[in-house]
């Protein structure tokens, strides 16, 4: 879309992570032929326009002791979904909240929320709180616990050499985690 070739190179250069050195932006810049100040300026611009949603640590919930996660899905009337989505997203243990399409009759749910907890009971308690706090008592829902995680490695959107999607050892949750 709007990315220049230089920005694509920059996106590729930092997608696996920032170098753990005193002046990381100088090192990134050196790899792609930008000065440190140009690199800083471009990264700030990408943060401002939202191409980079956030810079920082990406935690593995499981390794932090949050061993259970569930996708709680809700069948919300279309004219209420915006307001209810905002309410659900604002609750502190909800880590993701998306509107997605139904597939009737098999799949009637149009709002997806991700709930983490230290164990299954904690997740279920959180969902009860959520129902109470957001007045979801009359809303049909299901809770899909995860049983196994096969891959959490993540898309690399731009390869530094050929332009293709590769998947490597790290995860980029670019607004698309389930």
């Amino acid at each position: 879309m709007g990315l220049t070739a230089r920005d694509q190179q920059l996106v590729a250069a930092i997608q696996c992570g920032l170098p753990l050195v005193s002046r990381p932006f100088a090192e990134i810049g050196a790899r792609i032929g930008l000065s440190e100040s140009e690199t800083i300026e471009r990264i700030q611009a990408l943060l401002t326009d939202g191409t980079i949603k956030r810079l920082g640590v990406v935690v593995r919930h499981h390794e932090l002791g949050y061993r259970a996660n569930a996708m709680a899905v809700w069948n919300i009337p279309d004219d209420e979904v915006d307001e209810r989505g905002r309410h659900i997203g604002a609750v502190d243990f909800v880590t993701l909240c998306y509107r997605r399409p139904r597939h009737l009759p098999d799949w009637p749910y149009n709002l997806f929320s991700m709930i983490h907890g230290q164990n299954r009971d904690a997740v279920l308690r959180n969902i009860e709180h959520l129902i109470e706090q957001c007045g979801l008592g009359g809303i049909a829902h299901e809770v899909l616990f995860s049983r196994r995680r096969f891959k959490q490695c993540g898309a690399h959107y731009i390869d530094s050499q050929p332009r293709q999607v590769i998947v490597g050892g790290t995860r980029i949750p670019a607004g698309g985690q389930p």
């Binding site: 879309m1 709007g2 990315l3 996106v11 930092i14 997608q15 696996c16 992570g17 920032l18 753990l20 990408l46 326009d49 939202g50 191409t51 980079i52 949603k53 956030r54 810079l55 920082g56 640590v57 990406v58 935690v59 593995r60 390794e63 932090l64 959490q152 993540g154 898309a155 959107y157 731009i158 790290t170 995860r171 980029i172 949750p173 670019a174 607004g175 698309g176």
Partner: peptide, 14 residues
Amino acid sequence: ILSRFGPMYHAERL
């Protein structure tokens, strides 16, 4: 414990 230290991208913008 950390899967990564770096950017989270907006995929559609890329």
